[in-house]
Design a protein around this nucleic acid. Structure first.
Length: 433
RNA sequence: GGCCUGGUGGCAGAGUGGUCAUGCAGCGGCCUGCAAAGCCGCGUACGCCGGUUCGAUUCCGACCUAGGCCUCCA
């Protein structure tokens, strides 16, 4: 079983919309690994690109400085969101050889042509072009938004290799010093690591055309007509202010920044709270709801802190798995998690606790200590002072001086501390998303 | 203009041809010194108009509306 996800072009921090695919397909990978332990999951890094070049030139540094920095930032952001690293993280610049080989094969088979230092894919040579995205080439050309260049035979033809000037990164090739086109990178990298035919190819819907269409054309033609990807999965876009969150629109929220402001699991929960194929709207209110939901689950777990888990691996609740097996229905899986939380609260058994944790684990949620969840942001709070106030309040209550006790509670509330009196004493937590 | 998706209760968001989504918020009750948490209960939800059907939120058609792709984009 093989899976390929189109990864980031690393010239800047990624925004939360960019994280939806990695998070959603991380859940898919977790699910698949249960059934196909030999799953090989590849997520590439595009580390050569015009935008990277622009950023490097602007800052006067080699592209490697930019790409290494932001590739690491990307790994950090994904780790922050609880995304497990893929099995393979191929970089475009370390696959120039395979890319050139693939282009040569396309030239040899008549699916590509060289012109003015460029090599272009001849869309007309691949009748199935447009099938995935449901468009026909005639219309495409009529659309006229494709770049018309004198060296193109047909406006829909796309670049496999383009020439580089001395001030830009380039690699030696049969067509001169140049660099690969974006589309061929994914074709070459997936073939290099996952073979001619991959099982699942994932990515955002915005890549459906032309990127994935082009990948199909290149790979199919380079591999003698073999199927490129058996299944395609496209995640819907994240919207913000009612519009697609995108760098070009400028309405982005960086993962890097959001992780400083909100609990990571709330961000992850939000990304999983809609079906992956549907659009999902991002808002502060939505994050607050996610935090409240997690509060409830963690509260159930905190009450069971002393209940020892059964030995061995956590169980995966059948209903959670069934939901995910049904076209990765994460909202349904989340609903099942709420049911499990109820069961844990009401039964208080080790089995119920394990089920809740096991279901959460499959979704990459409930991965932290319950007490830690409620005490997050504690560094900004003087815990000793809080404990001292609670002691005073306890004394006041014992003396039935409720006015004083309530005044202390108000004081704590002003410090963003919420308290709960329970049979095991008074608990406190930091009220901050 | 072409090609796609959607429009579900205050909010988020699944799903289904005919008794339940689920969560968040709200309301009432129990509990509590009072709260909080928890528990119990509540709210005439499926864009609009036709059609098919014994019956449609669910199928079909038109319309309105939102968004995406057609250019870099997760």
């Amino acid at each position: 079983m093989t899976m390929y996800l189109c990864g980031p072009t690393v010239y800047n921090y990624v925004h939360i919309g960019n994280a939806r695919g990695p998070v959603v397909f991380d859940v898919l990978a977790r699910l698949l690994r249960r059934h196909y332990p030999q799953l090989v999951y590849a997520r590439n890094i595009t580390d050569v690109d015009d935008k990277i070049n622009a950023a490097a030139q602007q800052q006067g540094v080699p592209i490697g400085t930019i790409t290494e920095r932001f590739a690491q930032a990307y790994r950090d952001d994904m780790a922050g969101l609880g995304v497990a690293p893929p099995d393979i993280e191929p970089h475009a610049t370390t696959h120039i050889g395979p890319i050139i080989t693939m282009i040569e094969s396309l030239l040899d088979s008549g699916h590509a042509y060289a012109a003015e230092g460029h090599v272009l894919f001849d869309v007309g040579s691949f009748p199935a072009y447009g099938e995935l995205s449901g468009r026909d080439t005639g219309e495409l050309i009529a659309g006229s938004r494709v770049e018309v260049a004198p060296y193109k035979r047909s406006p829909g033809d796309f670049v496999l290799w383009k020439p580089s000037t001395p001030d830009l990164p380039g690699w030696d090739s049969p067509w001169g010093i140049g660099r690969p086109g974006w589309h061929i990178e994914c074709s070459a990298m997936s073939a290099a690591h996952l073979g001619d035919t991959i099982d699942i190819h994932a990515g955002g819907v915005d890549l459906l055309f032309p990127h994935h269409e082009n990948e199909i054309a290149q790979s199919t033609c380079a591999h003698g007509g073999k199927v490129f990807a058996r299944w395609w999965m496209h995640n819907g876009m994240l919207t913000f202010d009612g519009r697609k969150m995108s760098k070009s629109l400028g309405n982005v929220l960086l993962v890097h920044e959001l992780l400083k402001l909100h609990p990571a699991e709330a961000l992850r929960l939000r990304l999983l709270s809609g079906h992956y194929r549907q659009p999902l709207d991002w808002s502060d209110g939505a994050i607050a709801q996610a935090v409240s939901t997690l509060d409830g689950w963690y509260r159930a777990l905190r009450d069971l802190a002393d209940v020892e888990l059964p030995a061995g691996d956590l169980p995966v609740p059948e209903r959670v798995e069934a939901a995910l097996c049904d076209d990765l229905n994460t909202p349904q899986a989340l609903a099942e998690l709420s049911v499990l939380a109820d069961a844990a609260r009401q039964s208080g058994t080790a089995a119920a606790k394990a089920a809740l944790l096991g279901g959460g684990a499959l979704l990459g949620l409930l991965q932290q200590n319950a007490e830690a969840w409620f005490k997050r942001g504690e560094s900004s709070v003087d815990a000793a002072h809080v404990e001292d106030l609670l002691q005073q309040r306890q004394a006041a209550r014992a003396a039935r001086d409720f006015k004083r006790a309530d005044a202390i509670r108000d004081e704590l509330a002003a410090m963003n501390i919420a308290i709960e009196d329970g049979t095991q004493g008074t608990r406190w937590s930091v009220q901050k998303s």
